[in-house]
């Protein structure tokens, strides 16, 4: 780009639009990497927790593996810190800071909700009757996938990526319905042909939320992240 003082108004407008669009694309690529890494880590963690729960169910402590989700933000942060050290500096733009704020808000809500559900679970298990405990239990997975779907959709709006908006809505609402109506557990029960839950059924059922999160992380995080990364800057 050279010095040209005889620009037309159209050319000026073109330069402004071009630079702002270029800045948006640079931020999209960085966001893509964050989504990709978050997706991979979440998928890996879902597998580890599913195996942990499957093993622990025989020791009457199934579901304890879900505590490992609390480590996930730390793992993602460590990976992103390593990546940020290696790459060239991308300036903090208005678009980038809006995306970052969306995801930090999501993280605070999810961590808070998870801790509240955990505390209430421990308290209600000791204080309430089994029927009351089941009726008042706070379901974690459906709300988390719904919040995650919302964060992806908002990111799509900020980055003006229509398919990211669609991914967020489909993954968020689809996985919410699947989890809220316990469709995974019902399917397993129907396939096993047993009217009453057995220990092996309970073992499989304890891993189902992890399967939902795994699918969600693939559709809602890893795939859109990969697509944003591959976009030409």
């Amino acid at each position: 780009m050279e010095e040209n003082l005889n620009m037309t108004a159209e050319r000026s407008l073109e330069i402004i639009t071009e630079q702002i669009a270029q800045s948006r694309r640079a931020v999209s690529k960085t966001t893509g990497q964050s989504l990709f890494v978050s997706g991979l880590c979440t998928m890996g963690m879902a597998v580890i927790i599913a195996i942990t729960n499957f093993i622990l169910i025989n020791h009457a402590s199934g579901g304890l593996g879900h505590l490992l989700w609390l480590v996930l933000p730390v793992i993602i942060w460590l990976f992103m810190r390593k990546y940020n050290k290696e790459r060239e500096h991308t300036p903090v733009s208005l678009v980038g800071s809006m995306v970052a704020k969306t995801w930090s808000t999501f993280a605070w809500f999810v961590i808070g909700y998870f801790i509240i559900a955990l505390i209430w679970g421990f308290v209600s298990m000791r204080m309430l009757q089994p029927e009351e405990y089941v009726a008042t239990r706070i379901e974690v997975t459906p709300v988390i996938v719904l919040l995650m779907g919302m964060a992806i959709t908002i990111t799509g709006h900020i980055l003006k990526q229509r398919w990211l908006i669609i991914f967020g809505i489909v993954a968020g609402l689809g996985c919410f319905v699947w989890e809220h109506f316990n469709m995974g557990a019902t399917t397993v029960m129907l396939l096993s042909g047993q009217p009453h839950p057995s220990l092996s059924f309970a073992a499989i059922a304890s891993t189902l939320p992890c399967l939902t999160i795994f699918i969600f992380a693939f559709v809602g995080l890893m795939l859109p992240g990969l697509m944003l990364k591959k976009q030409r800057v």
């Binding site: 330069i15 402004i16 071009e18 630079q19 702002i20 270029q22 800045s23 948006r24 300036p91 903090v92 733009s93 208005l94 678009v95 800071s97």
Partner: peptide
């Protein structure tokens, strides 16, 4: 134009 949309 580049700096207007970034902090720095």
């Amino acid at each position: 134009s580049l700096l207007i949309s970034t902090e720095e």
